[in-house]
């Protein structure tokens, strides 16, 4: 860009160019949805087959895979932070949305441990769905909103699903709410 004298039409072009160059990079969000989506999906499916195989303490797969996902997530956040240099309104709202997500998630996990996992799973799906809907609305990305709605509906349906099949419902919910929209986000132009 040249920086000499310029006329009023050019002034408008400069504003437009800078605003366009600052458009929110939706693609950057995809990696987080895919990381958590595939990890939760894998944990649910592996847990399901471990239950069928009557393996003791099959639930261990959850802390193992979620712990691994969290470490990878921290690396990703740190890398993004280093490469960053700007923060938009959407960045800030998105950041607090996902920070706030951990509150209800923790309550649901503790409810599962101390009350009943059968009652906790539908809430997981509702929380995932709710976060996807809000995030999709912020990014103006319809597949994420739709995926979140499907996840919430599956959460309601799960109340009536017996025993270990709840795990398959959870896998389905995360596939609809995070994985499909995550891949779609990865393919968007800007």
């Amino acid at each position: 860009m040249e920086y000499g004298n310029f006329d009023k039409k050019e002034a408008l072009n400069v504003i437009e160019e800078m605003v366009n160059s600052s458009r929110y990079k939706m693609k950057a969000e995809a990696k987080y949805f895919l990381l958590w989506g595939w990890m939760v999906f894998a944990a649910a499916i592996i847990h399901f087959f471990l239950v069928i195989a009557e393996v003791n303490n099959s639930w261990i797969i959850w802390p193992v895979l979620m712990g691994l996902a969290f470490i990878i997530y921290l690396f990703m956040v740190n890398k993004t932070k280093r490469e960053g240099g700007s923060s938009t309104y959407i960045d800030r709202v998105n950041k607090y949305l996902w920070l706030g997500f951990f509150g209800p998630l923790l309550v649901t996990i503790l409810s599962g441990v101390f009350i009943s996992w059968a009652a906790a799973y539908p809430f997981f799906m509702a929380i995932y769905g709710w976060s996807a809907i809000v995030s999709g609305g912020l990014l103006k990305f319809k597949p994420l909103v739709n995926g979140g709605i499907v996840s919430c509906i599956l959460g309601v349906a799960t109340i009536f699903v017996p025993g270990m099949y709840i795990l398959l419902m959870l896998a389905l919910a995360i596939f609809a709410g995070f994985i499909i929209p995550g891949h779609a986000l990865n393919n968007v132009e800007s």
């Binding site: 860009m1 002034a11 400069v14 504003i15 160019e17 800078m18 605003v19 160059s21 600052s22 700007s86 923060s87 938009t88 309104y89 960045d91 800030r92």
Partner: peptide, 12 residues
């Protein structure tokens, strides 16, 4: 103007 246009679309 370019600097201010960047700032108007970002928190920081």
């Amino acid at each position: 103007l370019a600097i201010m246009s960047l700032l108007i679309t970002h928190d920081e």
